[in-house]
Design a binder for these strands. Structure first.
Lengths: 122, 122
DNA sequence: GCTTGACGATTACGTATGTAGTCAAATAAG
DNA sequence: CTTATTTGACTACATACGTAATCGTCAAGC
């Protein structure tokens, strides 16, 4: 269940997280054209994701319909944690501090985060 | 310059970010023993990191002294950005929101982040 | 001086990943 | 019915990565 999803595979998951179930052809249509993938490549990704157990497929006549078995939020949580563990000693605050220092936070971000935190307080 | 650093390579960089320059043997000594790496493995990592241009080495007699060419903060910034782009549509606020929702923020984290943001405001 | 050990350089090998191509079966077109 | 097309299954191949082993050389002991 803790299968890693590669960068390429993630592009496929993204499509299915937005809309599912989809056929292989439909997934291929929706993949960011910037990747320039052939539909074969998409098929390969789908097969690998199935093998990893993060997708399921049900038969629909001669084709399959694919749907994610892992929620986007769960995946995001796992990856965020990985990053925080690897780069920030497992603490989230240094990550935010870092984003702030690097000017990667817009004024809007800051306002949004402050509102969020306020809501979290008892 | 935008070379990716793999998970294993990162362990080596971590050592050199803490202390440098170091010889290959010194790096090997300082690698987290939990990895159970042979010194050969460490040498391989050093060679690959050199090839990627993220380390430099200077001769010291018959050995080399290795030092990082990429700052830890720069690397952290790049990886944070990658994560945010991939998982949160490029905006930092949703990442923080996500951490909050997942209860991945301690009260301490929250206080720390609030203080930080306050300092950022004009 | 000859041997042994420390180093860097080169090579190895299995799995993951990016990126497809081929083959066979089923179906749609004619 | 025969042929072209669609679809999944299997195969391919180069590069990256994890994890070393081997080779050659130079220096330090004896």
């Amino acid at each position: 269940m803790a299968e890693r999803i590669s960068d390429g595979e993630h592009a496929v998951m993204d499509v299915l997280w937005d809309e599912s179930p989809l056929t292989a052809a439909e997934v291929a249509e929706r993949i960011d054209p910037a990747r320039g993938w052939s539909d074969r490549t998409v098929k390969t990704m789908l097969a690998r994701l199935l093998a990893k157990g993060v997708l399921a497929h049900e038969e629909d006549g001669r084709r399959y319909l694919y749907r994610p078995l892992v929620a986007r939020a769960d995946y995001a949580a796992r990856e965020s944690r990985r990053l925080i563990d690897r780069l920030f000693g497992g603490r989230a605050a240094p990550l935010v501090a870092h984003l702030a220092e690097q000017d990667q936070l817009t004024a809007e971000d800051i306002a949004e985060i402050e509102a969020l935190l306020k809501a979290l307080k008892p």
